[in-house]
């Protein structure tokens, strides 16, 4: 602990940042310290992304940024200027659920629901990675193309912790969607709809 704390710059720093969130564009003046996660929740009121640790250790804050699953707690908004962010409510709404959301509902792939939006975004991004042929830690031969199976799903979803213990149902839900996708060829990434708040 230093004796005389250095408060840092005293001037308020505000960076002009543009984010598209669930299809809606936002122009914001942001503190460079602000994460994408806090920007979504505290500034834009988009609560369909959750804070579970704020340290990149739980996956609750998973969003799709320009189509890839990332941890929004470790994304500084300033660095994501111009990005397209998709959260669970951008994938589907209560009246029109995304197939992954429907599968989580059908398989009871959650209990408290707090890790769920991150699980669902992660599952969507993960199936896309698998469709692209990306290997994983449990792909037997890393030189070959990975198959969709339960072991692959479990490994690839291990970055999303669920304390209620819904894992086996989460795997069932993703397996169903993944098999459906494989059957109907590669589905394009879902397109965000305009969300009016």
């Amino acid at each position: 602990m230093k004796d005389t704390p250095d408060p840092g710059p005293t001037f308020p720093i505000a960076l002009p940042i543009q984010l598209a969130v669930n299809g809606k564009r936002h122009q914001l003046d942001l503190d460079p310290r602000a994460s994408v996660l806090d920007t979504l929740r505290d500034r834009l009121g988009v609560m369909s992304v959750k804070k579970g640790c704020d340290h990149g250790q739980c996956g609750a804050c998973t969003v799709l940024a320009d189509g890839k699953r990332v941890l929004s707690c470790l994304c500084l908004a300033a660095s994501y200027d111009g990005a397209d962010i998709l959260t669970a409510e951008g994938l589907g709404t209560v009246d029109q659920l995304h197939p992954m959301q429907q599968a989580f509902l059908d398989h009871d792939g959650f209990q408290c629901g707090y890790c769920t939006p991150g699980q669902i975004c992660s599952a969507v991004g993960m199936l896309d990675e698998l469709a692209q042929g990306m290997p994983s830690h449990v792909t037997p031969d890393v030189r070959k193309v990975a198959e969709l199976n339960d072991a692959e799903i479990r490994e690839r979803m291990s970055g999303n912790l669920c304390r209620c213990g819904a894992y086996v149902n989460i795997v069932s839900a993703i397996r169903e969607v993944g098999q459906g996708q494989a059957a109907s060829a590669a589905l394009p990434m879902p397109v965000a709809r305009e969300v009016t708040r």
Binding site: S48, A88, E89, G92, G113, T116
Partner: peptide, 15 residues
């Protein structure tokens, strides 16, 4: 199916 399910899978149940 959980009554609160649709809100939870869309992330819109307010904690």
């Amino acid at each position: 199916v959980r009554i609160d399910g649709p809100l939870k899978v869309t992330g819109t149940a307010p904690y």
